[in-house]
Write a protein that binds this DNA or RNA. Sequence first.
DNA 1: AAACGTAGCAACCGCAAATAT
DNA 2: TATATTTGCGGTTGCTACGTT
Length: 310
Amino acid sequence: MDVNMRSSTHSTKSANSQSSEDESDLRRGPWTVEEDLSLINYIATHGEGRWNSLARCAGLKRTGKSCRLRWLNYLRPDVRRGNITLEEQLLILELHSRWGNRWSKIAQYLPGRTDNEIKNYWRTRVQKHAKQLKCDVNSKQFKDTMRYLWMPRLVERIQAANGVQPTATASTSGGSSITTATGRPAMGYSENFIHAPVNSNFTPENSANSSESFGNQVSDFGDYYGIPVNNQSVSQDYFQGEQVGYGGDYSLTSPNCAYLNNQGMSFQSVDNVMDQNNQQQWDNFGLGDTTDNLWNVDDIYVLQQQFSNM
DNA sequence: AAACGTAGCAACCGCAAATAT
DNA sequence: TATATTTGCGGTTGCTACGTT
């Protein structure tokens, strides 16, 4: 939705709990262009901070909280807008698997993205998939599905979009792993990807130009995540951070590999789960687009069956 | 064409932590 | 040190656009 299309005529309801404001006079609801300009101009001159007094001094009939939120989530010049890229999706899934709903913390690793945006992405896209699969988004089943299906698939899509040719593709039979021209694991997904993306190249602390350095550059993501770019494998030095709680013995590197057989769950190899047609459909999942159309009807059905048999 | 349902997202709320007085 | 105020976070709500019937 074009936010500029949002009504600017919302009524001025009673104010929220900001204690020191003249509550009878505060505006709420969507921001008008004039309000945006006032806030931008004031911050350009005086800087951020002290939001309550800022709101007053800028002549805005808004709470300090509202001003802060508007600035951080929308008006700030380094806010990135638009579709969440494949790389960002992968990162969100990974970081959420580690930290849960720590949106602001996750957002620190997605330069230009706000916690609100990531939270919305999670609620609308990820939870939608859980709903499709008829399982709880916090369930182990769904987390495993993300981990062993969705995330590897995203990796492959990123690689494909970047022109990296895995020697074993998702359409080959199970058990193969993606390798690079050097013979090393292309992604090292099972070994490296799930380890900390906290690396020496990017941290929130050194990300002053983060939106540029990250951008949509798959190569940057490759640096960040250890995804080989242009057939160059990336040093495992990128994965020196803490390990994620993904303990277990697995060697999955792509969706065509065997599903996990973990804690009593008896996943089959994907070749048994999906027939050739499904495999083809799986392969055909919109490479290059940035939507989350990772499941098709058959996949959902099969997964639902898997879950219902547990 | 209208009614209805759903998705996406900006904005609000309440709470807790941090900071100022 | 105690109290007040501000900031930041995660959860939730409500509005609009869009798709479906």
